[in-house]
Write a protein that binds this DNA or RNA. Sequence first.
DNA 1: ATGCGCCTTGGACAACTGCCCAAGGCGCAT
DNA 2: ATGCGCCTTGGGCAGTTGTCCAAGGCGCAT
Lengths: 185, 185
Amino acid sequence: MTSPMAARGRDVRRRLTAAAVELIAEKGWSAVSTRMLAERAGVAPGLVHYHFPSLRALLTEAAIGAMREAVAGIEPASDLVDGLLGPLDAYTGRDPVSLVFVETYLAATRDEQVRSAISALVAEFQGKVAGWLADRGVVAPEATAAVLMATIDGLMVHRALNPMARTDLRPVLRRLVEGGAVCGS
Amino acid sequence: MTSPMAARGRDVRRRLTAAAVELIAEKGWSAVSTRMLAERAGVAPGLVHYHFPSLRALLTEAAIGAMREAVAGIEPASDLVDGLLGPLDAYTGRDPVSLVFVETYLAATRDEQVRSAISALVAEFQGKVAGWLADRGVVAPEATAAVLMATIDGLMVHRALNPMARTDLRPVLRRLVEGGAVCGS
DNA sequence: ATGCGCCTTGGACAACTGCCCAAGGCGCAT
DNA sequence: ATGCGCCTTGGGCAGTTGTCCAAGGCGCAT
């Protein structure tokens, strides 16, 4: 199906996007350079522009791929707060995934292509969460999902500044999803 | 008290920090250059390193000053959600203030000096909000304040991607501060 | 008018940037 | 062994970067 050379090419592509995710987190989106990328991926500098049309295209593809992957692993649990905070525990605000999320949010502000891609990703996941909330009888599931997602992203950012115990926060977050249902019923 | 020359010097300093805030928002923290800054401030390039020891020092001072100023204007209202969302209405996620906040959060990840300054600023304001919450009988005021601040910052970021009506979100946010008090009483 | 401080200018420096390209390597069919 | 495609290399290009610095300007006391 594929020649050994083509397989090697695909491997280089993968190594470059992996290096991009690392470096976006470490240095920041606009501080990542082609030569940095090549060195981290263990390839020659010229390869970056052979496999990708531009540096921006590489960063965009890498970041969106990483975000899509991170979000794909989240499934509805019986306890929604625990289910959503579980992944959050792994994301300290200083890990690559958290930082790539925030860096990409900011990049979206300055690049329409990134903005539309991220916007779609967030909207899709938010819709999924809204569905889970609706199943549980939470009122205003759409708005609640929007607030819940924003809170999680905000907590990731704030935790990088000032690590806080997730356990203390859990009962407060529960108000978001229970306040509308339990309290009113 | 001050000579005309010294006054001129102070004016240049102010123009440079103002330009820094604009450019951090427009281009991103690490994409701001000395010459960009000088041009925007209307001064010669060499002046940047006369008035500031380094580019990083200028960006840090400018960003922290802008954040301190933005936070200083927030006072407790009778309705806390309205009081905190009022300023949020002005911050669309694409205005200089919102972007400087997020950019500086990320810069704090890579610069210990920025991190400690921002951490103190956030902690101080969070403590103030926790006090307001405690006055209103909200349970777990500290944790609630932490979640509330994170939610507001998260909403700023998400609104830049996908503008959403603030009015729809307000009742959901109210659960955060009322769930603990009203529901239980 | 001489000297002192502070502010300002514009250019120099080496290092780095994104992007491009001639030259070569490799696997494979002919 | 010859040719074809894809992948790879390293260097070149023009432009930008942070930082520094000699030279000059200005207000003011002497």
